[in-house]
Write a protein that binds this DNA or RNA. Structure first.
Lengths: 123, 123
DNA sequence: TCTCCTTAGTATCCATTGGAAACCATGTTT
DNA sequence: AAACATGGTTTCCAATGGATACTAAGGAGA
């Protein structure tokens, strides 16, 4: 069985989506939201070195795609909570697989990079 | 059980790896190589609209990370074949999950985007 | 022979993106 | 009054991305 969409085709909207998902920050945010709703500055503190601009932009895109909801509570100062939608949750599982793969296979990759660089320097 | 690495930490090398994997083109290339070795120009034709520069750069990074091998055959003109390493194959499965997710959930995302944009225009 | 085609890239240029830092409004605490 | 919290936007510069043209080596066709 085949899908109606094909990521290998330019013009295919999946390209736009893949472009969105294949983003370091988007993956980390989705991963981080899996445990439940999180506030803006909380995300900012958890995901080290993400800038406010990029966090804000990325959340806006994820909200537009229907992966994340944004809820404002009229406290003082205002509280804004981000949470996964059901659709977002299905993606977060896939995203988690990627981040876990990275954590899991880090040693092999570092070793390969060292060997590659050494071989290059030798020439 | 916990890993020795944590993607949420800056300084953690997994950040660099996630940065590499969280790339539209890298995912598409890994996905494409799952079926077996493929030549440079074949990849270029298959992955529509990828530029030669980006394809070349991405393959080089994947090779450095030990995910892809590059084999040169002294034919005329020269043939260069790219293939997944065993490590690369484990990642390709995860990458495939992402591209398939995109193909599978495209309609829901397009609908969400349309609703979001309509609500924005209304205001 | 001259020109075009193939291979797998590199080189160059410009536009878009990314990140660092400053700034904003609002209101509480010190 | 000054500092801190909230959740952002704005500004600026450096880095990245993509389009295009170019390279070298050799084969095929005119």
């Amino acid at each position: 069985m085949r899908y109606a969409y094909d990521v290998y085709e330019d013009r295919c909207p999946t390209r736009l989506v893949l472009d969105r998902l294949a983003d370091k920050w988007a993956l980390l945010i989705l991963d981080r939201l899996e445990g439940g709703p999180v506030r803006f500055n909380h995300l900012r503190r958890d995901i080290k070195l993400i800038s406010q601009k990029v966090l804000s932009q990325t959340l806006k895109k994820l909200e537009r795609d229907g992966l994340v909801t944004r809820t404002v509570y009229p406290t003082v100062p205002v509280t804004v909570e981000y949470a996964l939608t059901p659709l977002g949750r299905t993606l977060a599982e896939t995203a988690a697989a990627l981040t876990h793969w990275a954590e899991h296979n880090m040693d092999a990759i570092l070793a390969s990079q060292a060997a590659y660089d050494a071989a290059l320097a030798e020439r």
